[in-house]
Every structure is written in structure tokens, then in C-alpha cells.
Design a protein around this nucleic acid. Structure first.
Lengths: 364, 364
DNA sequence: CTGAAAGCGCTAACAG
DNA sequence: CTGTTAGCGCTTTCAG
């Protein structure tokens, strides 16, 4: 019952099996080069004693931890307001678990926390980090880079975009070899807008996301790509800045209706924004999709399926993004194990863009 | 730049400051009993070398990790469908961070994972665990108990309720000294139903949550408490089993309307269920609250505020629950440090119930 | 194929 | 107050 007293050590197992510690260690770690009968005896002892290796001792010598940090930086309170991160976390967790790695969650609550996170990462507690860099001006990427921890970003990091830089610290030079996973925001947006155009809509508007996030910028770019192709379609008044929230969607839609009462299609930066827009549209007496067609982005089932009418939207596989991030990091880590002097180099370098699909429902 | 080569050790700092390792250790850990000038010199050296203590080495000797596991067991995919866990996590993270503890997230994906989690916990990687035990028949609580790790549960564990037991393994005897944090589900439900009764409603129905979770059972009990007090109010047909989801709410509401077309008030087990009910009610041509008053539970802002009409609901402070769980665990851990032979005893023993408040909006 | 020995970096008595 | 001395439990050469 309460044998929690003190867990058995390698020594104990060795004694019981009548072998040396080294042999037990070998068996426990894959058992290469140990004759079967001996190995069996060791396994026996391990089972009987309920031996579990002490990670601290192991890490001390191997300098590995089989642990990965997941950093979610979000000043705003609404971080988890949508299931987005939760889904990514699931994906990450699955992949990590499959490779016997632990997930250490680091939530940041504003600037002060950045130092803490940087210190933790620099402290070498984990083998690598998965970072969700949400805002263009976030200093975190720079700090993490300085910490020298192999990292994979979730979503294209914002710096280097247009001359913008996270900060001016000399040491935070952003190397080009950044690894990140993102979905094809621009392509998805293009598909959505093109669909709207193909529907014969001539006044296609866009309610943007928070433009300090690359996903919002990329979706806006995708919208512009298509609008530029259609003669006479572009009209700056058709673009209203919003913030990825339902409330923001309402405000933006109201604004849009004021500016362009003749709008006949709306591409919202995400489903939540579309939700808000839908409400305002309904309140204004417009029918969807007859009078105004609406398309969202993300395909968050609980939202998209439940709107009235059900939302046509651009689907991205969020859980898969998480899984992929973890896979890339782990792969890089495995590669780095062949300590090529400059060990711990980043995973693979480059971005991986996952495809998106247009899901047609009733709203467009 | 790339000084990631190999981090400086205590030894290095000691050499640089011209003192012994022990002294550096003292300064790094609070610096008691070190003369100021010396301490200053050490801090200097630490800063110059960018020294960060090696946790593995420290844990090896202190047998502490300053890390806590958060176990979220959820077979269903919809774990994160609602912001519930996310909020608790935030609360936990904040409290843990304030006490310099790390959060190791363990997500389980079905029965196979239980063994993994149990092994991890038993492996002594963390100082304690915060466990969300969602289902009455979950074997996890038993396994965790066996692992002998100080634990605080989120939500009242289901076993011991009514003779039900998690499993029959002899070693999984559920000690009564379980520590958990929950909100006053029963009291909150009572307040809601009483409010409905006070409004003059005579046919008050209840759409339950998933009854394999104690929160759902407790809310049902609260409903019954009040109904039993009102002569002639009880009617078994007024209770329809549902599952905490919008879809379930819809189904249940339809069922209810079929059974009791004269229903004039509905207490839904949570906001999501209420959301579904609202939709069916509207579709059936009933006005809310004129014809049927509706009350939810949770006060998930993104849901409750956005329904039509805005939802009257029972609020619980989810983030605070998380924070409290962490605080209780940490306190217990601190207490256990005075190794009273049977060290590592559970935190405080007993449940802490957080209050709920009825938030009146337009739906009732 | 197996054992002996040497630490990994740190803390914790115990001296001085 | 500060330094010395032992390990914590494990992996890993290096012999045998």
C-alpha cells in the first residue's frame, strides 16, 4: 500500500537480479548486447520491485529530458476563448506522447512573463520548444532565439515581413532558418473570395482579423489577390478592420453596411467574425445568402455548423498542425543528437504550409 | 552568440567569484548566511557567466522538481470544445508560476493512456498532480491513488457517491481524505430553480448534463430539492437527460416539448445545453422568456452573452477554481516537506466548494 | 557479453 | 560565516 517510502534504484534491481548496475541499465534502455536469459532475469527483477528510472539522474548524465515546452503567449485574456489552441495542444500532445516526451506548458501573461519563459528555456529544462507567436511585435521569438533552444513556431512568425522587427536588441538577429508550421492562409482566402466572385457577387467585402497577426495579414493579402484580378472589383471601403472576435465582427459589419449598403458578399477573417457579421446582417433585414453571401475561415465545428444559416468556410486542420509541429521538432532533435559540434541546430529550417479546403454550406 | 556550447556550472561561478561551490549554492538559493560583500561578488559572477542552475542535478539531490502535473482525462473529442478547461488551466498556470512551479500537461486519450499517466506519476517526475476526473467510472483516480502522489481533484470525484466504485482492484481503496475543489453545483441549481418558481412558473423542467459526471448529478439534485418543496410541482416527465452539448440540448428540448407542451420554464444543466434549447424553443414559435423562461449554468461569457435573448445563468468562477486547486496542492506540498515520516501525505483532505451566483439577464 | 569505475552538477551535513 | 566532503541515481567508457 504505502510502499511510497523510497523507490527502488538501479542498485536494488541489480542486486536482485544478481548482475551489475550497468547491465540493468542496458536492459532498461533497450537491452542491446545483453544475453537473453540475463535480460529476462533483469526484467523480472524490475517488475517485482516496480522499478521506475529516475529521470533526474538520467538527465543529469544524458543531458536530455524527453520534454518539450509549449509556449503560448497571449496578453489578451481571450486566448482560449476559441478552441484553436486546445486543438493544437491535442495534436501536439498526441505526437509527443507517441514519442515518450512530456509536454511542459508555459502560458505567458504579459511582458513580465517573457523573461521568466526565456530563463526557463535557457535553463535547459527541455529539449526544445513549440512556440505560438501571435503578435508581430512580440519580443518572445527574439528571446527564444537567444536562449538557443531548438524551436518550431506555430503560425508564421511576423518579423521579417516588411522590414518590421521584433525588437532592436543586437543579439536578436532573426536567422532565416526559422521553422514554422502554418496553414495556407493566403490560398484559403483566395479560394473563398474566388468562390464568392464565381457566385456572381460584385461587391465582395472583407472583414479582417487582428492585423498584428500574420494570419490576418495573409488572409487579407489573399482577398486582395483575387480582387485585383477582377476588373473594377477593388474598393478600399470594402475592407474593414476587425479582430477575430464575434463582437468585432458585429462592429465591422455595421461599419461596412454604413459605408457600402450595396455589399453582396462578405469574406470574414474567421468563423467568429462571420458569426458577428451574420447577426448584424439578420438584424438589418438582409437574407443570407440571397442578399449577402458570407464565408468564414477555420471551420470550427461548434461555430460553423451551428450558425444560421450554416456557415460556408475555409477549413484548416488545426490538430494536424499541432501534430506536425511536434513531429518537426522531434525530428530535428533526433538529428541534432549526432552532436555535429554545433549541435542543437534548429530542426529543418523552413516553413511547412498545410493546405486548406473550402467547405460549402448554406451561407455562400 | 552561440555560447550554447555548454552552460557554466556552479564550479565555474565559484572559481570566478573566488569562493567555494557551497557558497555559490547558498547565494543562488536565497543566500542565507553569506556576508553581503561575498554574496554580491557571487551574484556578479553569476550574471557575467549567465549561470542557470541545472534542475536535473538539483532534483537528484533534493528530490523535488518544482513541477506539477495537470491530468486531463477525456475520452471524448470534445474536451476542449468549451472554454472550461482552458480557464482552469489559466488559473492553475498563474498560481503555479507565482510559486515557480512548472506545469506538465498530461492529456489522456482513452484507456491505454491511463497506464502511461500512472507510470509517469509513479515515476516521481513531479511533486504533485491536479486531476480532472470527469467520469464516474474513470479508473484514473484509483491508479493515481496507487501512485502515491499528492493530488487535488478538480470537481468532486465520482466514487463513493452511491456505492459506485471506480474499479474493483483491491489496492484502489479510495481513502476518504480526498482533496478536491468544486463549485456549489447543487446550491447553484437550487437558486436557479427557485428563481424560476418565484417568477410564478409552475411547469419547471430540467435538461440534465451527462449523468456520469458528478456536476450533472449535483445539479439535478439541486433541481429536485426545490421541486420537492413546491407542492405538486414535481413531475418526472419534466426531467430530460442530456449531455452538456448544444446538440444534446436541442434533442432534449424537442423531447421535452413532446412530453410536456405546457412547460413554462427550463433549467438547463449548462449554457451550451441552454443554447440548444433556445434554438428549439424559437423554432417552435415560443417566446423566451414570455412563454418559456430559460436558465443556464456556467456563465461562459462567449455563450451566455451572445444568445438571443441573453441568458440568465448561474455563474461559477472557473479560473479561481483552477487557482485554488494549485494553491491547495502547493500548500500540502509545503507542509509535507517537514518529512513527518509518512511524508507526502495528501494536502489538506476535504473538499472546497466555491460559491455560485445567479446572473440575471433577459431569458428568465 | 558483462563488470568496475568515473563522474554528470548540485546540495547538505559537518568541520573549521 | 565559509570550505570540505560525500553522495543523489544513472550512464558510459574501459577492461576483462
Amino acid at each position: 500500500m504505502t510502499e511510497a517510502a523510497s523507490r527502488p534504484t538501479l542498485e536494488a534491481v541489480a542486486a536482485r537480479a544478481g548482475v551489475s548496475r550497468a547491465t540493468v541499465s542496458r536492459v532498461v534502455n533497450g537491452g542491446d548486447g545483453v544475453r537473453e536469459p540475463v535480460a529476462e532475469r533483469v526484467r523480472q527483477a524490475v517488475a517485482e520491485l516496480g522499478y521506475v528510472p529516475n529521470q533526474a539522474a538520467r538527465s543529469l548524465v544524458t543531458r536530455r529530458h524527453d520534454a518539450v515546452a509549449v509556449v503560448i503567449a497571449e496578453p489578451e485574456t481571450r486566448v482560449f476563448a476559441d478552441p484553436f489552441f486546445a486543438l493544437q495542444l491535442r495534436g501536439i500532445s498526441k505526437e509527443l506522447t507517441a514519442h515518450d516526451n512530456q509536454l511542459v506548458l508555459l502560458l505567458t501573461e504579459g511582458r513580465d512573463d517573457h523573461a521568466r519563459v526565456a530563463r526557463y528555456l535557457a535553463g535547459g529544462h527541455v529539449d526544445g520548444a513549440l512556440v505560438f507567436s501571435l503578435h508581430l511585435d512580440d519580443p518572445l521569438p527574439g528571446l527564444i532565439h537567444d536562449a538557443g533552444v531548438p524551436t518550431v513556431f506555430g503560425g508564421r512568425p511576423g518579423w521579417g515581413d516588411d522590414g518590421r522587427t521584433a525588437d532592436a536588441t543586437p543579439s536578436s538577429g532573426h536567422d532565416p532558418g526559422v521553422v514554422y508550421v502554418d496553414c495556407d492562409n493566403r490560398g484559403g482566402a483566395r479560394a473563398a473570395v474566388r468562390h464568392l466572385v464565381d457566385l456572381g457577387r460584385t461587391r465582395v467585402a472583407h472583414l479582417t482579423g487582428a492585423l498584428d497577426q500574420t494570419s490576418a495579414v495573409d488572409r487579407l493579402d489573399g482577398y486582395r489577390d483575387v480582387m485585383a484580378e477582377v476588373p473594377g472589383a477593388s474598393d478600399p471601403r470594402l475592407v474593414v478592420e476587425s479582430d477575430f472576435t464575434p463582437g468585432g465582427g458585429e462592429r465591422a459589419m455595421r461599419e461596412l453596411l454604413g459605408r457600402c449598403p450595396d455589399v453582396d458578399a462578405v469574406f470574414a477573417a474567421n468563423d467568429l467574425t462571420a458569426l458577428g457579421a451574420l447577426r448584424v446582417l439578420r438584424a438589418s433585414g438582409r437574407r443570407v445568402p440571397e442578399d449577402v453571401a458570407v464565408i468564414g475561415f477555420d471551420d470550427m465545428l461548434p461555430v460553423a455548423m451551428e450558425t444560421d444559416p450554416p456557415l460556408t468556410t475555409v477549413r484548416q486542420d488545426i490538430e494536424e498542425m499541432g501534430r506536425l509541429m511536434a513531429r518537426l521538432l522531434l525530428r530535428g532533435l533526433a538529428g541534432g543528437r549526432d552532436r555535429t559540434a554545433a549541435a542543437e541546430q534548429p530542426p529543418a529550417a523552413g516553413g511547412v504550409i498545410l493546405p486548406t479546403t473550402l467547405i460549402r454550406r448554406a451561407s455562400a
